[in-house]
Write a protein that binds this DNA or RNA. Structure first.
Lengths: 133, 133
DNA sequence: CTTGCCCTTGACGTCAACGTCAAGTCCTAG
DNA sequence: CTAGGACTTGACGTTGACGTCAAGGGCAAG
C-alpha cells in the first residue's frame, strides 16, 4: 500500500507518516520512482506510535523503545528510563484524577444548590472520595 | 515578597511567573515603581498551577479552572464547560493509564526475560489486563 | 556616588509534532 | 493521450511554555 492508504487506515495524515520516517520510527520500501510502499502491518505500527505519543512520550524515547518492543528485550538502561516515565505518567494521572474530583465537587455544588450541606470544603470532600473508590 | 523570592519558593523561574500573570493565572500587587509584590499564599498557587501544567492541561483550561476551584460557585454556563472539560480530563487520564499498562508490560518483558510466553503481543496483554484490574 | 544585585518591559529564540503551501513527478481511468 | 488525483522533496508556519538577551530603572551597602 502507498502512503495515502496507510494514512487512511491508521487515521493520521501523510505528513505525519513522513515525519515518523524522518524520525526513524517508521520504515518504507520505495518504488523505482521513490514512492513509499508499506506492508499491511504498518497500520498497526503507526497506531502503536500514535498511542505512545498520546501517552506523552517523545520521539527520541519512542525511537529507542520500538526496537525494544519488537525484540521483546529491554536493556537495564532503557528499563530505568521506562520506570521513570512510568512514574511521571502515574503522577500526571493522579493530578488529573484529583482535578477531576475537584470538578465533580463543583458540579455537585452547582446542581445541588443547597448551600448548607457542603460548606465548599473541597479538599475534605476530595480526601473522603479518594479513600473509597 | 518580590518575584525572585517567590520563584525560589515555588521552584520556577521569574519568567514563568510573569508568563502566568500574562495568562491571567496569577495576580500581583505593584509597588510605586512597578515591582511585583506577592503574598505568601502565592507559592501554593504557583505549585498548583505547575501541577496542572504537569498534568498536560493548557493555560486556557487552567485559567477557567482556577476561579471555579477557589470560588466554589458555578453558573450554568460555566457548568457546561466544566462538564465538557471533565470529560476531556477523564479521556486524558484513561489514555495515560492505558499507556502506563503498556509500559508495565514492557517492564515485565524486560524483567522476566522468558522469551517464550509473551510473543511481543502487547495489545493482547493490555486487553487481558484491562478486564481484570 | 558608585558598585552590584534585583527588578521592569520588549522582543526574539526554542522545541516538538506536525500543518500548509509550492513546484514538480507519477499513475490510473477514460 | 490526457486529465486529475496521488505522490515526491523542500521549506516555511503554528502553538505553548517558557529561555534568553537587551536596555534601562530601583535601591541598599560601602
Amino acid at each position: 500500500m502507498r502512503i495515502g492508504e496507510l494514512a487512511d487506515k491508521a487515521g493520521v495524515s501523510t505528513r505525519a507518516l513522513r515525519y515518523y520516517e524522518e524520525q526513524g520510527l517508521l520504515r518504507s520500501q520505495r518504488t523505482s520512482s521513490s514512492q513509499r510502499v508499506y506492508e499491511e502491518s504498518a497500520a498497526d505500527r503507526v497506531r502503536l506510535i500514535q498511542e505512545l505519543y498520546q501517552a506523552g512520550l517523545g520521539s527520541r524515547l519512542i525511537v529507542t523503545l520500538l526496537p525494544a518492543i519488537d525484540a521483546g528485550e529491554v536493556g537495564p538502561e532503557l528499563l530505568t528510563r521506562l520506570l521513570d516515565e512510568r512514574a511521571q505518567i502515574e503522577a500526571k494521572a493522579a493530578v488529573l484524577q484529583d482535578a477531576g474530583r475537584r470538578l465533580d465537587m463543583l458540579i455537585r455544588l452547582a446542581t445541588h444548590p443547597d448551600g448548607q450541606s457542603c460548606p465548599s470544603s473541597l479538599d475534605q470532600a476530595v480526601a473522603q472520595d479518594s479513600v473509597s473508590p
